[in-house]
Design a binder for these strands. Structure first.
Lengths: 184, 184
DNA sequence: CTCCGAAGGCTATTGCACTTAGTCTAGGAG
DNA sequence: CTCCTAGACTAAGTGCAATAGCCTTCGGAG
């Protein structure tokens, strides 16, 4: 029985890859098959399906964080928000099955999850700097932005926007309305 | 073996009840146990788990429709939208596990699903009348409103709003911002 | 009232997933 | 070279969905 040379990381990233490659839900059976290994072998690297989901979630949050941080790097004001919004939506549409993992609240027991989740939130908050907002105002504004972005993308992914009118334009309008609602 | 007296409707409404009564996902095993019947018996009334989910979805959409229609009845303009938004959110928070069923795009093969989904959309659209919007503007506005409502509620249900600031106020502010973005 | 067929239950079984327990071996440390 | 552990394996148990086939109850037709 030749060793497959798995590690916790290879298992997790194989799982991450599988998510958007296949239509069916992530399953240990499918993952082990993709890795050329029997299912129980995975338990040497991962505590079970829940653990795997949690780790995939952290990995996916990192991906989104990178994309968003890159989009806003060096920008400020409305332009930063526009670019962040656009990057958020297009990443979600490109990674429709991974996207829901970014929404789970951080597992209180996982330091890495807490960290990446905080950095995601921080990226949004930073993009809104430049609009002079008080602390409370800022919290409300970030919530509004998250709601708008997630709501839009989520409905779009569910196929909720059936009418022929251009979805891109709906999104742009929503983002512009949000920007206008901020004290300059 | 005394008859349990099941019908398609009793099975479906028992399933609907189970959803928000138990933490675990809806399962034929749990449903049959709740009805005092063996699992295979359910197949006399329902084509399987998928069929059950679809029917529960229609039932749940009707519930939400009733709540929203009631909230906007006899109102118009901003006040109609405010009441609709508030009703949407509070229904969702009261029915956290049922809520996701309202989001699935209508099954093209089910007349009742298509109908209730269309009426839901129509209720939102109607609430926005009074703001003189062109046809295209209206579609974009409805999409923005749906995104806002769903996004907010969805994040709130996922536990995504961790900070102590009042979530109620965040919601009110988001709704007011949306209203201000409409041409009066 | 009796018969009988359909409707509505049932048991048994298959298939697939997750999980645990216990075994064997490859391959590096001493 | 020997040992020992990490990393693979087989075997087996659990839970759920689904199908097949049987048996009983109900209710209407004669």
């Amino acid at each position: 029985m030749p060793r497959a040379g798995l590690t916790r990381d290879t298992v997790i990233s194989a799982a991450r890859r599988l998510i958007d490659e296949t239509p069916d839900p992530l399953t240990l059976a499918a993952l082990s098959a993709a890795l050329g290994v029997r299912t129980p072998s995975l338990y040497k690297h991962v505590a079970g399906l829940d653990d795997l989901h949690a780790e995939v979630g952290v990995a996916v949050k990192h991906e989104l964080l990178d994309v968003l941080a890159d989009a806003v790097a060096g920008r400020s004001g409305d332009e930063a928000v526009r670019r962040l919004a656009s990057a958020y939506r297009s990443w979600a549409l490109r990674n429709p099955r991974a996207y829901p993992y970014t929404l789970k609240a951080a597992d209180h027991a996982s330091a890495s999850d807490l960290e990446v989740s905080a950095r995601l939130l921080h990226t949004l908050t930073t993009a809104l700097r430049g609009h002079t907002l008080g602390d409370d105002d800022e919290v409300h504004a970030v919530r509004g932005l998250r709601a708008l972005l997630h709501g839009f993308v989520s409905l779009e992914l569910e196929g909720g926007f059936a009418l022929p009118q251009a979805v891109d334009e709906s999104f742009d309008r929503a983002v512009e309305s949000f920007l206008r609602s901020l004290p300059s």
